[in-house]
């Protein structure tokens, strides 16, 4: 287990303040520099990858089933808006809650096994969820839920206005990242890291390891759902693609590439992967091959990821 645990120990104090400040500034100027829809997609995936990282990076659990929460929340939100006419913020909240509940169920089964078996179990359970979504009457199978209206937040703020939408998405991103930050730096988060480092020891110290793991799983699932629900509002569509194992694989790659166990790594990884996917989408060359190659390269040579490697360099300097 220790291999995946990349240190999160102290960085220079300046960095600790500078990085969030820089990121906030970037958040403000980003939609002026790039296509706003692309930036919003990026934010959704950055939050997704960061939520996933809470589990892999800070608890040492590799979930191969996070697409279920991402796409599952998307389906619930899309259905709530389109079929029930729910107000968008409540629909996002509902999607998030649904993902949390799914996380509770999947987590309760999966944490009964450790390490590699945990990964395989989550993969299998999420494949089961995939088939259930495929068959469920409200998901329209291969077509997905299309043309989801964005509506007006709280009935007042028109989200068809791209600026309004961006502010909402950016706000959700900051909220989600803030929650993750809080969790990591809470006593709860420290216990999670203790479990990651040495589960047996944490247990012998009297921590109910299973409850902590389940707690981390549920929080991670919920935040993943928040990201997935928000994405529905941006793209106005919920599809099978978002609940497929390929999506679970993508988010692992984002974490791995950016740096598992670093706060900023998954966002960096998400940015890179999304950019690569966008670029390749126009060339006709299968994205899958490039993603696979990056996977292999990361595992063989670059296990700390970009941010992890940079952080290690900075510490040594």
């Amino acid at each position: 287990m220790t291999d995946l645990s990349l240190t999160t120990a102290s960085r220079p104090r300046v960095m600790r303040l500078a990085v969030p400040a820089l990121l906030l500034a970037l958040l403000v100027v980003a939609p002026m520099l790039a296509y706003p829809l692309f930036v919003m997609k990026l934010l959704c995936f950055a939050l997704f990858a960061s939520a996933f990282n809470l589990l892999l990076g800070y608890t040492g659990l590799l979930s191969f089933g996070h697409a279920t929460f991402f796409g599952g929340a998307g389906y619930v939100t899309a259905h709530a808006i389109k079929a029930w006419g729910l107000e968008p913020l409540s629909a996002i909240l509902l999607g998030t809650l649904a993902a949390t509940a799914m996380g509770l169920v999947m987590g309760a089964v999966a944490i009964r096994r450790q390490g590699i078996y945990f990964a395989m179990t989550t993969l299998a359970l999420s494949q089961m969820a995939y088939f259930l979504f495929l068959r469920a009457p409200f998901t329209n199978a291969e077509d997905g839920i299309q043309n989801v209206p964005r509506g007006a937040a709280l009935g007042l703020i028109d989200l068809n206005d791209i600026t309004h939408l961006y502010v909402l998405v950016a706000g959700i991103f900051v909220l989600g990242m803030g929650i993750i930050w809080q969790v990591i730096h809470s006593p709860f988060g420290h216990v999670l890291r203790a479990i990651r480092e040495n589960e047996t020891r944490a247990q012998s110290l009297g921590y109910r390891v299973d409850r902590y793991k389940l707690g981390a799983f549920v929080i991670s699932a919920g935040l993943t759902g928040l990201a997935g629900a928000t994405k529905v509002l941006v793209f106005q569509i919920a599809t099978l693609n978002d609940v497929s194992w390929q999506m679970s694989g993508s988010v692992i790659l984002m974490g791995l590439l950016g740096g598992v166990g670093t706060a900023a790594g998954p966002s960096v990884g998400a940015g890179l992967i999304i950019t690569i996917e966008n670029y390749l989408a126009t060339t006709g060359f299968p994205v899958q091959v490039i993603l696979g190659l990056i996977f292999i390269l990361c595992v063989l040579t670059f296990r700390q990821g970009i941010v992890g490697t940079l952080a290690a360099r900075l510490r040594r300097a």
């Binding site: 995946l4 390490g115 590699i116 899958q288 996977f295």
Partner: peptide, 23 residues
């Protein structure tokens, strides 16, 4: 190394092989 890395490496390998054949 942690067995998880073997899983991830072979996952990447599967993506490459299947992607190339699909192409």
């Amino acid at each position: 190394l942690d067995p998880l890395y073997g899983l991830l490496l072979t996952f990447g390998l599967a993506l490459v092989i299947e992607g190339l054949f699909q192409w």
